[in-house]
Nucleic acid binder design. Structure first.
Lengths: 272, 272
DNA sequence: AAGTGGTCTAGACCACCCT
DNA sequence: GGGTGGTCTAGACCACTTT
């Protein structure tokens, strides 16, 4: 039995026991946070209920004020409670608008794995038209690099990427590198490109004939359209482009609220 | 002279950054966090750079260790830095996999506004088939409620929702309420339903003929498919269903890294 | 051994809410 | 006025990394 599980046990008689194990690997504030979360999960504390005040928790668990606060803050960040100054801390009802979808799944396709290949379809240096110039904050007619790439999972096309880059004469283009580097720059942001910030939008579109053909799906299929603008350290747009992800290969997931069996989370306190 | 006033003495000849204003509304840790973020945004601190150590910050800004840590933690949560015990704190390169999409936009459609209407298409109590039973963790043949609803923005259909609910004989069905209540339950989670947790997936699909017709779009249009399972306080599935959101009406956005002009955020310390 | 992040305590003051 | 969350300090110990 781990410390965490012990801490989560409802104590008969008294509603809670002194449960913090100072020898455990998990810090005290996490043990308390997880103990409280366990009470939320198992229904001892239900949505709308008021948590014990911080002073009560402090006394009960023999912790300092600050440590109790950290525990409460942890639950706050997990979206499980809300706090109201002068009133108390309350269990939050799961709210669909708290759902958060991350793009980790995408990264797995990008960070050059064994399966993934990048297929460079086109590289061109061209003068920016009105639209591109506006997005990249350059003058119409200035040079820009236009890329078209296909991301492949083995032999299956996954995503079709088009991108405009501000042309930097000091960094000559190496076609071979473009297949990989610039892409990794977006997803790893390391070194060279030194991207400073970015903005993304994601929406759902129907593929045009040519797009569908590239992605080996039926024309009219649904796809995620992920548009991105990345900015350099001077806060100037450096890249504007968009991915079309095959809808049948990408799926994002999220969870809300507190499920029953809380995973160890801080992990690795099974020893002893 | 109180401790506070003494501590508020300005730093003479500070080479770097604004000092902490103890009279400001914004707490010290936030001021420090924002000051550091400003340095990241304006390029004084670039991706990969090491931040001043906490000891240095502590001395420089005349703050306690704990307060400095809170500031660093704030940046950590904002995804702007990474910390490495024994080595230091480093400015993080923006990483697309940090991008996070929230469903706030959806909520605006749901929380009964003036524009939004719910159009109940069908309510039925039916015995659960194999598939429904498995999702709701009931026995095949047990009763379930099947709902079909259309979410309207004025006269425009936005989303088509189908849902199976576990049938609870103790709570008779009131058709009028179903148009609204059960839906709000999902999005506000307040009171009655007392939903405990949920899981969501979002993907991109192509609408079938009947679906497209309901949503007033061309057959084959792209749409977001948002599937949900909600669980009650006993951790039993209470609801399984899915929304089809018109792709042309929904768009999610996210940002990465630190943009230039950081908003005041805690705001209102310009007075005095 | 020195530097650095991570945790914790005991005590304090403040702003806010409720009665 | 008493309870509650929010902030802050000074000092301490630990674990990890680097020299």
């Amino acid at each position: 039995m781990t410390d965490l599980e012990r801490a989560a046990l409802p104590i008969a008689g008294a509603n809670r026991g002194p449960t913090i194990n100072r020898d455990a690997y998990a810090p005290a504030y996490l043990q308390l946070a997880d103990a409280l979360q366990a009470q939320i999960s198992d229904g001892s504390l239900r949505p709308g209920d008021k948590l014990p005040s911080e002073a009560q928790l402090r006394r009960h668990y023999q912790l300092s004020q600050v440590t109790v606060r950290r525990a409460v803050n942890t639950l706050l960040q997990r979206g499980l409670v809300t706090t109201a100054q002068g009133r108390g801390t309350f269990v939050k009802s799961p709210d669909i608008s708290d759902a958060v979808f991350q793009l980790r799944e995408l990264k797995e396709y990008i960070v050059q794995g064994e399966r993934t290949r990048v297929n460079l379809l086109e590289v061109r240096v061209l003068p920016a038209d009105e639209r591109v110039a506006r997005k990249l904050c350059i003058e119409p007619g200035e040079w820009a690099i236009y890329l078209r790439r296909l991301l492949m999972d083995r032999d299956t096309p996954i995503s079709y990427h088009r991108e405009y880059l501000v042309y930097d004469p000091s960094q000559p283009i190496v076609e071979g590198e473009l297949e990989v580097t610039a892409l990794e720059g977006l997803f790893r942001g390391n070194g060279k490109a030194a991207l400073q910030s970015g903005a993304l939008t994601i929406e759902c579109v129907t593929l045009r004939e040519d797009e569908a053909q590239l992605l080996h799906v039926a024309p009219g299929s649904g796809a995620f359209l992920l548009e991105h603008v990345f900015r350099d350290s001077m806060d100037r747009p450096a890249s504007w482009g968009w991915f079309l992800w095959r809808g049948d290969r990408i799926k994002f997931s999220a969870t809300l609220g507190a499920r029953r069996r809380v995973r160890p989370q801080a992990g690795g306190d099974e020893h002893e």
